[in-house]
Nucleic acid binder design. Sequence first.
DNA 1: AAGTAAATGCAACAATGTTGCGTTTAAGAT
DNA 2: ATCTTAAACGCAACATTGTTGCATTTACTT
Lengths: 152, 152
Amino acid sequence: MDIVQQIRDKGLKATPARQLVYAELTRSHMAYSHAELEALFLDIDRVTLYRILKDFEDAGLVHKVFDTQGSTRFAICHHTCPGKHHAENHVHFNCNDCGRMFCLQAVQTPEINIPGGFRVAGMHTLIYGSCEKCNQLTDKNEPTDKIQEVIV
Amino acid sequence: MDIVQQIRDKGLKATPARQLVYAELTRSHMAYSHAELEALFLDIDRVTLYRILKDFEDAGLVHKVFDTQGSTRFAICHHTCPGKHHAENHVHFNCNDCGRMFCLQAVQTPEINIPGGFRVAGMHTLIYGSCEKCNQLTDKNEPTDKIQEVIV
DNA sequence: AAGTAAATGCAACAATGTTGCGTTTAAGAT
DNA sequence: ATCTTAAACGCAACATTGTTGCATTTACTT
């Protein structure tokens, strides 16, 4: 479906900045930090970017996650989320080397039993290690200048 | 073992502030935010508290975790951690109502297989919902050991 | 093409965390 | 017990991340 239409369907105006952000999130399926997006779209105002991400989250277009450093990241919603209450129950992967964060859509969060009087509402599963690209670099001793493609 | 000695064994001086913080973390087995500790120990300087927590973490006395809001929290290490490289592989529980965070020492993070070229180094498992105390406030007839389905 | 609510840009503020530096103190040595 | 000194502390200043108020601009409806 058209990106413009997807944004409008959530009751939001499809401004140029919103189209750029949404297109990038849709294209890459990565969880971006605010800093990464800011670097990618230099002409989008800092505050506007915060508001776009907040609006997208409230609209159910993107979901917010935290990486191993506790930094906020945003990724596209794969299932149609009904507004603020997201149903993203997949696992995320955070690369220790390049810092990028991946949505593993195919991997569901596992079932887990916990003792005591806790009432479970949901869970977050964050796996960390090295992504494929960083694996290959260290394993095969490739020159580091090939990393420049990697967004930190 | 004596709290003073445990701190000294890590090469740190057992100052009054450090003893207070370490004693509280040991006593409660909860993961405290900086704000919670600051409120608890009003006479410990803000910066000193940051440094105490950092020193404890580097020494392997406490481990750092993030709650569902992405806020930093610190909890006592149950296993003897060899310095900065922690081996805390248990599950954490964050109460949506009171905001407190619990270390579920008895619950290990589950095994999980992920596709692709990812090399897994570890994982964080954060479960959220209502803690026993908050449960009891809203509904009194919930069996405490009942295991609920994990949804997200 | 015009009207209007929504979105933007800017400045200021707030929360959280870090750094530099002079002073104080814990803990081993005398 | 006192001395010595590296470690720890307290304070101020700075850095980063995120929020709010408000005047201006723009997307979308009619």
